[in-house]
Amino acid sequence: MGVQLDHPLHAAVALPLLAALIVFPFVVLAIDEPFYVVLASRILIFALVATSLNLLVGFGGMVSFGHAAFLGAGAYVVAILMQHGVASAWIAWPAAVAVAALAALAIGAVCLRTRGVYFIMITLAFAQMVYFVFVSLKAYGGDDGLSLASRSVVAPGIDLNSDTLFYYVVLAFASTGFFLFARLVNSRFGRVLQGIRENETRMEALGYAVHRYKLGAFVLAGATAGLGGALLVNQNELASPGTLSWTQSGMLLTMVILGGVGYLWGGVMGAAALLLMEELLAAYTIHWQLGLGLVLLAVVLFAPNGLATLARAAGPGGRDG
């Protein structure tokens, strides 16, 4: 029943993985399967977003059912700016992050007055409000979403429309983001978050300004999801209301639960497992979610704390999490 506050990032795990991800496009292009580069980009983007949600759910004990709002906000900011002729990634991507962070600040300031089930419901309610705002904005595509004329422009000679180049940009953001996350959860701030998850009243009585730390985490996670949205809209070349829907929030939560709530690698493993499963099963049946349900059931039965606990039991890292 004991819980560790330390979540060491083992170089012996992280560096080989990073190396494998760097050579990955060469391998799949060599065997003439370029589609896998696109799939890998998608997994990396969702790994980043699911990790940001894990910071809230797993480390801060804040079960947000509205994380898609920030993912979608980031996506729409890039798409809307592009429609108005602003194609530069240097402007659009920071704008996406800033808008998502501000939205998280406003929504968090209200939602964090509640706890538990009420927090779940109110974050869901806010996300639904954002969803319906964008569905009703006919100028920006309404139900159909808003498609991008091309991917964001970085610099002459660097064309993100190349899937391989885009993959490396995503990899840079995802790996940097994950590294910062690993620093964060082990820092003073990360310890405070975990303390709040364990016993919020006691943290307040120890002298921590609890609300400030929760809001800080909420804004950080929202901003990261916004970045994920900016990457995702470039990947899909479409900002769709579906990115904002409650099923998307549910999918992100599923990734976190599948991967491991409160484990360093939980978001990454959950995103990878879920998207790979979707890809595999969807090749056989449009009812792939049935298969997903069965797998989730198996995880709940055999690894109730998520896939990350399996790696922990088997891996060389011992008690890493």
């Binding site: 506050l5 820092s187 003073r188 943290m203």
Partner: peptide, 30 residues
């Protein structure tokens, strides 16, 4: 009202950290 899932030492560490200035620090491992 203690942190029942944490070790006694981690309980004390959280308490000590509270008295050691701001915890708005994001980089150095505790």
């Amino acid at each position: 009202s203690i942190f029942t899932r944490l070790s006694a030492l981690d309980n004390a560490l959280l308490a000590v950290q509270a008295a050691a200035g701001s915890s708005m620090r994001f980089w150095t491992p505790v």
